[in-house]
Structures are given as C-alpha cells and as structure tokens.
Simulated scan of single mutants.
Amino acid sequence: MDDVPAMIIYAIYRVHSDDVDAFASVAVRMATEATSHDGCLFLDVVQDVGDPTTFRLVESWRDQAALDKHLANPAFHDALREARKLRIETYRSDVYLVSDRVPTAMPTV
C-alpha cells in the first residue's frame, strides 16, 4: 500500500469578494510549489461553483516528515505572508491520518 497517502488535509477558505483573484493566485502558486517536492502526492485548489469566494484545498502527504519539510520551506512562508495580507473571512482545516487497514477502494455493492 505504498501509494496510499499517510495524511490528507482538507482546508476551506472564504475570502472577501475583492480578494478572490489574489487568493486564487497565491493558492495555485503555493500548490504548484508544494507538488514539486518529494512527499507531496497532490495538492488541489478548487473554487466553489456556487460561491466563488470559497476555496477548498485538498492535499495529500506521504508522511509527517514530508509535510514538515513543506511547512518549513521559505516559498511556503512567502505565500503565507502574501495570503495574510488578504481578507480571509473564514478558515477551517482538518487533518486525516490514513490507516493501512482502510482499503484503497470501496467494495462494489
């Protein structure tokens, strides 16, 4: 089960309508940077169709060490500094640890 991520992070940001384009730019740039590093299996940035001020970031990391390396990266801190200048109205993040006991695919019923 080497291809199963160890961690999945699901974050939701709601930004002020005037900051939508700026936030999208920062988030996509950060995702592109993160996915170039070993240990990041994916980091997707999606904008809510029904509410364009809401963004969802879903990321998957091989292990805690890979995530820690990302969090220590100067490029991540640059993006974070830039995002903090924007009007982020709400933020929520959940971290899920993937157990090797969980099957990679649900059985067909």
Score class of each variant (00 low, 15 high):
residue 3 D to E: 13
residue 3 D to H: 14
residue 4 V to S: 10
residue 4 V to W: 04
residue 4 V to L: 13
residue 5 P to H: 08
residue 7 M to G: 01
residue 8 I to S: 06
residue 8 I to E: 02
residue 8 I to Y: 03
residue 8 I to R: 09
residue 16 H to S: 06
residue 17 S to V: 11
residue 17 S to Q: 12
residue 19 D to K: 07
residue 22 A to Q: 12
residue 22 A to F: 00
residue 23 F to H: 06
residue 23 F to A: 11
residue 27 A to H: 04
residue 27 A to F: 03
residue 29 R to L: 04
residue 29 R to Y: 00
residue 31 A to G: 11
residue 34 A to W: 00
residue 34 A to D: 11
residue 37 H to G: 10
residue 38 D to Y: 11
residue 39 G to P: 10
residue 40 C to F: 00
residue 45 V to P: 06
residue 45 V to I: 12
residue 48 D to H: 14
residue 48 D to L: 06
residue 51 D to E: 04
residue 52 P to K: 12
residue 52 P to Y: 04
residue 53 T to M: 00
residue 53 T to I: 00
residue 53 T to C: 01
residue 54 T to F: 03
residue 55 F to A: 06
residue 55 F to H: 05
residue 59 E to I: 03
residue 62 R to C: 01
residue 62 R to W: 00
residue 66 A to H: 08
residue 67 L to W: 08
residue 70 H to D: 05
residue 72 A to V: 10
residue 72 A to P: 07
residue 73 N to H: 15
residue 74 P to Y: 06
residue 76 F to Y: 15
residue 78 D to A: 15
residue 78 D to T: 13
residue 79 A to K: 12
residue 79 A to F: 04
residue 79 A to Y: 07
residue 80 L to A: 13
residue 82 E to I: 08
residue 82 E to H: 09
residue 82 E to W: 05
residue 83 A to W: 01
residue 85 K to I: 01
residue 89 E to I: 11
residue 91 Y to E: 01
residue 91 Y to Q: 09
residue 92 R to K: 09
residue 92 R to F: 01
residue 93 S to P: 00
residue 94 D to Q: 14
residue 95 V to P: 02
residue 95 V to Y: 02
residue 97 L to S: 08
residue 97 L to R: 15
residue 97 L to P: 00
residue 98 V to Q: 02
residue 98 V to N: 06
residue 99 S to G: 07
residue 100 D to F: 02
residue 100 D to W: 03
residue 101 R to F: 01
residue 101 R to K: 09
residue 101 R to T: 10
residue 102 V to Q: 07
residue 103 P to V: 04
residue 103 P to I: 08
residue 104 T to Y: 07
residue 106 M to G: 08
residue 108 T to I: 13
residue 108 T to G: 02
residue 109 V to S: 05
